[in-house]
């Protein structure tokens, strides 16, 4: 009896892991192509850009907020980076892209703190407006045209390497992600600034009374999110070798989906960057498996929505 309870609790706590195992088994049995190395590397490559964005989003959600502007940030950063390759070279373009992402995130944070947005609803709509602004700027800059990296006259081999190169058989983008993830994990669990994010998400008033500068923490969270979106944007742009002002479409919902599925509660305060990685893995696997099983892309949208709704529902039931 007691053992059964333990098993049930284990299953309840590791639903995502279980989902991944079931998904992999079912797909591998029906479609053996799934286990080919090429497909598996492909999954890893597809995963990285979303993983970066979801990593940034984890911090925002742990802090008790939400950010819909990642669509705009991913798109605008890709446009900035791609259009800067010719004038200042690839290294400069890459750095400028990352800097632009951090600045856009900082702008978000500053606007939110200046207006004093504290509840999720206000944050949601303001970041939605910002997203619309970012996309519009991208559209105005590019005139809605697609920028191709391969058309640039200066060398662009760094982007090719990020997009399709591998080191010792492991995609370079994954290696970059692993390094960033390690830094972010250390930051979240071992530094005062990282811990203050959880504190702010758990109870703002308590954090304020403890002497933390809430506004500064909020700006920091959004800056991190902007920087991570920039990483995601550059990885995505290198993989598809084009940049458009709508490159990031769907990333906001998918990133939130990954974070929530990973087990970070939307109420804030609780969560873990490593668990988000599991969420990203599940969502990417889901779309890959559905592709292999021959289901339409439209059904994948349905599935993503259903997973999002169910995940939040289950998470909520746990707390009740």
């Amino acid at each position: 009896m007691r053992n059964e309870n333990k098993l049930l609790r284990f299953i309840n706590q590791n639903l995502v892991l279980l989902g991944i195992i079931v998904l992999v088994t079912v797909t591998a049995v029906i479609q053996p192509k799934f286990l080919m190395t090429r497909n598996l590397t492909n999954i890893l490559r597809q995963m990285t850009s979303l993983a970066f964005v979801a990593l940034g989003m984890t911090f925002v959600i742990i802090g008790g907020f939400i950010d819909l502007s990642v669509v705009g940030m991913v798109s605008l950063v890709s446009v900035i980076t791609a259009s800067l390759i010719n004038p200042i070279g690839q290294v400069g373009a890459l750095l400028c892209g990352l800097l632009a992402g951090a600045l856009l995130g900082y702008l978000n944070g500053t606007i939110l703190t200046k207006f004093g947005a504290t509840i999720q609803a206000e944050v949601l709509f303001i970041t939605y407006g910002m997203s619309s602004v970012f996309i519009a700027v991208g559209l105005l800059v590019t005139n809605a045209e697609t920028l191709r990296i391969a058309r640039s006259t200066r060398p662009y081999d760094m982007f090719t390497a990020i997009g399709s190169g591998s080191f010792l058989g492991i995609p370079i983008s994954i290696l970059i992600f692993a390094v960033i993830l390690a830094i972010m994990y250390f930051f979240q669990t071992r530094t005062l600034a990282g811990r203050s994010i959880s504190l702010m998400g758990g109870n703002k008033t308590a954090a304020y009374l403890c002497g933390f500068n809430i506004n500064r923490t909020m700006q920091m969270v959004y800056t991190i999110n902007g920087l991570m979106s920039a990483f995601g944007s550059i990885v995505l742009m290198s993989r598809v070798t084009t940049a458009t002002a709508t490159l990031g479409t769907g990333y906001e919902a998918n990133a939130i989906l990954c974070v929530v599925v990973g087990g970070t509660t939307l109420a804030g305060g609780k969560g873990n960057v490593l668990r988000t990685l599991l969420g990203v893995f599940l969502i990417t696997l889901l779309s890959n498996c559905m592709n292999l099983l021959g289901l339409s892309t439209y059904m994948q949208t349905v599935m993503n929505g259903a997973v999002l709704v169910t995940a939040i529902w289950l998470d909520n039931r746990k707390r009740l």
Binding site: Q120, A253, V260, T301, V302, N304, G305, L308, V309, W313
Partner: peptide, 27 residues
């Protein structure tokens, strides 16, 4: 049911619902 009865956060639940419905419409 989800928002009122199960007390979930309405913003995110309805956002997910919208995504789901868009997929259904496309299908």
């Amino acid at each position: 049911f989800l928002v009122v009865h199960q007390k979930t956060e309405p913003f995110i639940i309805t956002l997910g619902m919208g995504m789901l419905l868009k997929g259904v419409a496309q299908q």
